[in-house]
Design a protein around this nucleic acid. Sequence first.
DNA 1: GATAAATGTACACAAACATGCAACATCGTG
DNA 2: CACGATGTTGCATGTTTGTGTACATTTATC
Lengths: 267, 267
Amino acid sequence: MAKLAPTIDRNALPEERQQRILARLRNEGRVVAAELAEAFEVSEDSIRRDLRELAAQGLCKRVYGGALLPAVTVTPLKQRRTEHPLRKQALARKAVSLVKPGQTLLIDAGTTNAAIAAALPVGAGLTVITNAPHIAQLLLDREGFEVLLIGGRVVPSIGGAIGAQAVEQVKRMRADLCFPGACAIDAAHGLWGFDSEETLFKRAMIDASDETVVVATDDKLGAVAAHQVAELARVQHLVVEHSADRATRAAFAAHGVMVHRAEAVSG
Amino acid sequence: MAKLAPTIDRNALPEERQQRILARLRNEGRVVAAELAEAFEVSEDSIRRDLRELAAQGLCKRVYGGALLPAVTVTPLKQRRTEHPLRKQALARKAVSLVKPGQTLLIDAGTTNAAIAAALPVGAGLTVITNAPHIAQLLLDREGFEVLLIGGRVVPSIGGAIGAQAVEQVKRMRADLCFPGACAIDAAHGLWGFDSEETLFKRAMIDASDETVVVATDDKLGAVAAHQVAELARVQHLVVEHSADRATRAAFAAHGVMVHRAEAVSG
DNA sequence: GATAAATGTACACAAACATGCAACATCGTG
DNA sequence: CACGATGTTGCATGTTTGTGTACATTTATC
C-alpha cells in the first residue's frame, strides 16, 4: 500500500511537489515532513517551506512533525445567529410591518429570518410555515402562532430542510407572504442563491405565495451568486438597511419593487 | 468490533494523536490512559498531557485513569423545560447505551426524548429522524448528526408535528430504533397515548422501526390512558428509573421486554 | 489507615522548527 | 554572451516543542 504508485516523486518541480503533497494529504489525511523529504529527495527544510505555503492558503493544517487536513469548521449557525443582532433587528422590525393580521407566512431558514420570526406580533392570528427548526421552536416558545413545519433532510450549514421532500411539501401549500432568505439580489438579474437545492426550495416558496418579501443586509445588495432563484418581477417588496445606497434603492424601485428602508441603528 | 479498524495509531503526530483520542472518546464514551499509551506507543505521561490539553479546551473530562465525555451542559432554558432534569438525564444515559454507531433513530417529541437527544454520542455517525423542532435544533447545534425533520402542523402542547401529514412522512422511512414518548405503559395492555392523533403518529413510528425503546418515568409505569398505541409485544426495550418497583420490572420482563434500569440519582 | 496505582511537577534531551545566508539554476534583457 | 533579477535549495544558527525519567503528591481500594 505504501509505494505501489508508480509516480516518481523525485525530480519534481517545486509547484508540482506541492500539488503532490496535497494529493498525498488528501489520500491519507496526514503527511509527515520526514517522509516527504525522503520521497521527493529534498531537505526537510524545503518540505517545511512547502507546508508553510500550503497552510497559508488554508490547504492544510500545520502540526508538529508534518501536516493534517484543515479542520472543516464552517462558522457554526450557533455563532452566526448572534453576529449583527441590532442590524438584523432593525431590518426585522421593518419587515414585520408588511404583515397583516390573520395572514399565512412562509419563512425560510436563516439568521435574518429568525430575527423576523422573533419580531412577529403575538395574537395577530398568524400562521407560519417554515423549514427551520430554530424558527419553529422560537415561535412555539412565544405562543400564539400556528406553526407548520416543512420536513426533510436538514442541512446543518443552512439550518433548515431543503431538498426534494421539502419542495414537495411546500408545493402543497399556499401562503400570503413569503420571506425567502436572500443570498444575493441584483436589480438587473433578480434573486440568487448559492446552492442548487437551496435555490429550488426558494423558488417553490415563491411559487406558493401571493407576495414575496426579500430582506437583504447591505452585503447582499447588488451581489450575484451561482444560481438564479427568480426574476426580480417575482419580488414585490425589498427591505434594506438604513445605510443602503440611495442609487441602489432607486434601481430596485425602477423595476417596480417597493423598497422599504429600516431605521438607523446606533451600533 | 474493537480492533477491526486498520487504522494505525502508532507513529501518529502529536496533534493527530489528540484528534484520534477524541474520536475514540466520542465513539466509546471513555478512554483509558494505559490503553491509549499502548495503542499509540508513547508513555502514559504523554497521554496524560494530551488529556490535560483536551480537558482545558473542554473537549473531555479528566478522571482518575483516563477521561470521559464532558458533562452535557444543559442550558438554563432547557432545564426549565424539564421538570426533573437529573432523573431524565439518568434515564437518557441508560437509553443511549442501547444505540449503536451508524444507526438511524426515530425520536418522538417530549422532554424525556430531548434529554436522550442531548445525551447521544457525537461522531457515532447517527441519523436522527424527529418531529420535534426542539430536538432537531439541539442536534444541529451539537453538530455531527444527520437530521431528518418530519413536517406537519406543530401542536404546541406536544412540541412536535403530528397529524396525517406527519404520519405519511414517517411511513416512507425506516429506522433501526425508535423512541416513542410514553404517556403510559402497562404490562398487560401495552403502550398508551392521551390523544387520538398522537397515538396514530406513535404507531406509525413503531411500524417504521426494527426495534422500539420505551423510556418511562415512574409515573408512567402501570398507568393506562385513553388510546392504545401498541401491544407490549411491539416493545423490545423498556428503560425505567432506578427507583422503579421491582415487581413491576419483573412483570414487564415476563412479557419478553428487556428492562434496563437507570443509575440512581442523588437529587 | 495501609498499599498500589495514578497523577502533577521539574528537569534533561532530542526532534522539529524558523530564520538568515550563501550557492546554484533559471530566465529575461541589454 | 554578459548581466542582473528572481527564485529555490541546503546548511548553520538559535529557538520552540514534545517526550521520557525522577520524585513528591494525590487518589482509589481494600
